[in-house]
Design a protein around this nucleic acid. Sequence first.
RNA 1: GGCCUCAUCGUCUAACGGUUAGGACAGCAGGUUCUCAUCCUGCAAAUCGGGGUUCGAUUCCCCGUGGGGCUGCCA
Length: 487
Amino acid sequence: MRTRFPPSPTGFLHVGSLRTALTNHLLSKKTKGNFLMRIEDTDRERLVPGAVENMLKGLAWAGIVPDEGVMLDSNGEVVQKGTHGPYYQSERLDLYKKYAAELIEKGHAYYCFCTPERLTEMRKEQEARKQAPMYDRRCCNLSKEDVDAKLKAGERHVIRMKVPHERTITFNDDIRGEMKFQGHTVDDQVLLKGDGFPTYHLAHVVDDHLMETDLVIRGEEWLSSLPKHILLFEWLGWTPPQYAHVPLLLSKDRKKLSKRDGDVAVEEYIAKGYLPEVMVNFLALLGWNPGTTQEIFTMDELIEQFSLDRVQKAGAIFDLEKLDWLQGQWMRKISPQEFAKRILPLVTEKFPTAASDKDFIKKAQLIQERITFFHEAPEMLTWFYKEPHASVELLASEKQKITKAQLPEIFAILEKTLSDVPEKNWTVDGLKDAVLKNLGDFKQGQLLWPLRAALTGLPYSPGAFEVAEALGKEKVLHRLANAKKTT
RNA sequence: GGCCUCAUCGUCUAACGGUUAGGACAGCAGGUUCUCAUCCUGCAAAUCGGGGUUCGAUUCCCCGUGGGGCUGCCA
């Protein structure tokens, strides 16, 4: 299947767009077809510089790289590649003009000279009469001579499609099944605008035919325009592609997701530290399920398992609750080596000595299962690189049944026990063994909490023995002595 | 208003017309040699309403209701 992602370069990459792009990408890969990127830059007023590059980078982050069309080259420059170009609609104006002319010739379209002011006025009146706002076809009735005269006089005009009112247009959607539209409810859509640029409708039909797209996956917001597109394909003598209209992503109040609803730009999630795998996994599961209980998916697994017939018809709320859980799952899936490699630069930035730490991977392991984002790593390892100050309030703990009065005795036991542990036994197991054998009259929690707190200065951290092993005997005894002084 | 469309726990969702309506996230309660996290166990939580069809409807049909989309010389 040849699929495509045709964003308009009007801003950032929206999470909803990413999902549509992902769906198109998955189906093309699954069927060993091409996934192409086209730029719909026909609205000259909304163009945003840098938007194309930005979107391509967002896609690349997620692991989606176009096979054809507009893409990033090895230097990160935006280029066009492929045999069906150009892939910017602004460079295809002659094509749209040609087909618009063909439609006029065949009697399926007509020139319209109505001014925007008149159209506004017309709609106002229609609304006042509780009628559906639709073009009233005034210019459809112009005589050939009138049209020629106006054209010759250089009057600004558009080209509209002439929808047959008596027709019933039916079509089959891959997700929704058969659909019917009555011709008289479909407006005479503008195909070519006054500035010579096409509207989405003409451009979509011309491009997806010429670019040989055979599966168009797009948002549900296009469903209402489907009859227009079907008609256009028919009039031009072309076979329409398969269509699949995916349900929309909704905000918590069930409205179409927009900027007001929090973060909708992919770059915000990148900045927050979400893994691309997590975003892809999360988006894939919104509106689709594999039919099994599998929840964690790599891109390859999605490519293999994804299919349109298990796509939901109803819109899905873009609810971040599951996103954080997925992030945790994926963080823990990373290999220890890779995890250490990813956090090392971050930790080094704050604690330069980490760079020369041969055992860094060991420290990394202590936090991997409790971390959510890489950027939390330096903070979580601070206890290792910087001597903590453990307050008495922290060392004593009501929950662990440790009073301030007991602390001196507790630390005396700990110091004695630990200083007796030989270097070769200075491991989690060796330390555990030694401490648990020398509890005195205390419960183990009454010794371990102060030990851990003294070593880290934190209310929570990796376990006491793990921390002690990572720190080494010398530092442990030093910190113990410091903590003892405060009691 | 018109047209299109959708409807299962709070959320994402499963269920050839026959299930105690299942799972996951979140929530709550426990457990896991100290905290936090992880992990484990358990609890609570849904078929929008009304009519049909059927021996039997979450499932099929109709009508409501509710939500969403479109209704631009935006995409």
